[in-house]
Nucleic acid binder design. Structure first.
Lengths: 247, 247
DNA sequence: GCACAGCTTCCGTTCAGTGGAAGGTCGGGC
DNA sequence: GCCCGACCTTCCACTGAACGGAAGCTGTGC
């Protein structure tokens, strides 16, 4: 039989990791064939490696035969500094901010030209949001994103402003308009959005500093900022200062 | 040179996973030598595999040369059903519970003879707790643990009751006394603790049902239950019922 | 009952992986 | 400033873990 007509230069480890990479937010449950396709691996190879990942707990197999990310990955994911550093320090402040405002609370960082959500608190009465912990959204359409973009290096700003995707009719897609807003973010110390990411959702966000560096952004999402902008800014600012002092 | 005096029967994938397994709550930052020792691998092998895991993002290397779990693991950990199922459904209820009580809120499941914490909310004024998301604690000393133990199969109860470790002077270590409490948990519908896990911390917890099965426990940690036990039980019960209906 | 899609198993061949040893780097102690 | 020890990095001849096409199996839909 055939076999051993392998792709030269590909390690076993990189194949196993390619299998893990096949999963994303749009693909949380995958069949063996799906994984083989997405990881660009032969079926037999995929089958063998899936068996090993499953035995260790990196993946689980559903009764339907499909695979999902396993508890073991969730477990060791919690050992990442992302989890034990900024998030852990910020956590009680986020909870207090939620308790004080009952608005959706976000803690986010910039990664390249995107926002990554490290934490999110929301109640049943909160404005529906599309953010997810671990998920990514654009920098130009979110409050936390505008804060992070305003404090980003020029080359990041240039890259983002060269490609402003419209998400709602209110999304800012003119580079000039966004640049003016980013300057205002630096002047005022906070950013706002008005239905630019989701209809019915407005937001306000502030930077979290470690020494002089902006390491994260803290934000709130509410139905409207009318009449509450300064109050929310005050609460955010205090929380962000407290977090920054503990870092 | 030597080389190729490999341990027979060990796959590359299992070695890479052994490296990831070297990390735990007590060992979040490890040197190359530490990892080699803990994964039972030769230095050269460890070095090569660490390079691959690092390139993919499963691990990061600190300026000191030590390794930590990388963002990539954190990212895909969020795709686990643990994250997208029970936790996501429960999240707004937990936040509301926190908003209503300002107590530390726990969502936990049983895994073998331990409690695993899926979520935890706490503010700056909350009672200090030792729980961590992704972390484990004993079943017999925590409120959520007693609930999960009361609803566990008999063989799990037997195993736990055969080995009741004392953690504080108030920890229940007599099997008869704990059995009586577990019966009370079933009768009353909730469990309590009084400084059995940590001095200064009392707790109350209820089961979360999916159909007839207890799939999790929801709990609160407070300085004292005096004068508030029924109120807290009411809040927990309503939240747990709501979560159960959404599952 | 048949066709098809997806999964599982096989196994001769081969190259990715092996790890002891040597060399390099760095930090601490004197 | 030097020395030592701990730790990390690199090498490479040899070999067995890994390879994957093909065949077989299973379940589903028509």
């Amino acid at each position: 039989m055939a076999g051993n007509s392998r792709q030269a230069g590909t390690s076993v480890t990189s194949r196993a990791l390619a299998i893990l990479s096949a999963f994303d937010e749009q693909h949380r449950t995958l069949s063996l064939s799906d994984i083989a396709t997405r990881a660009d691996l032969p079926l037999a190879t995929t089958h063998r490696l899936l068996g090993e990942l499953h035995r260790w707990g990196a993946l689980d197999r559903l009764p339907s035969g499909e695979y999902v990310i396993g508890r073991r990955i969730w477990d060791i994911g919690h050992l990442a500094p992302t989890e034990t550093g900024l998030r852990q320090v910020a956590e009680p402040f986020l909870h207090d901010l939620y308790g004080a405002t009952l608005a959706t609370v976000h803690l986010a960082v910039r990664e390249g030209t995107e926002v990554v959500y490290l934490d999110r608190l929301r109640g049943n009465q909160s404005v529906p949001v599309v953010s997810k912990v671990g998920g990514r959204l654009p920098l130009h359409t979110t409050g936390v994103g505008k804060v992070l973009l305003a404090h980003a290096p020029a080359e990041v700003q240039d890259a983002v402003l060269a490609s402003l995707t419209r998400i709602t009719p209110y999304t800012i897609t003119q580079p000039g308009a966004l640049r003016r807003q980013l300057r205002q973010v630096l002047d005022k110390g906070y950013a706002t959005t008005h239905e630019e990411m989701s209809l019915g959702a407005c937001s306000i966000a502030v930077p979290v500093h470690r020494h002089d560096e902006v390491v994260a952004s803290l934000g709130l999402v509410v139905p409207t900022l009318k009449g509450s902008e300064q109050r929310l800014y005050g609460a955010l600012h205090v929380a962000a200062q407290s977090i920054g002092r503990r870092l």
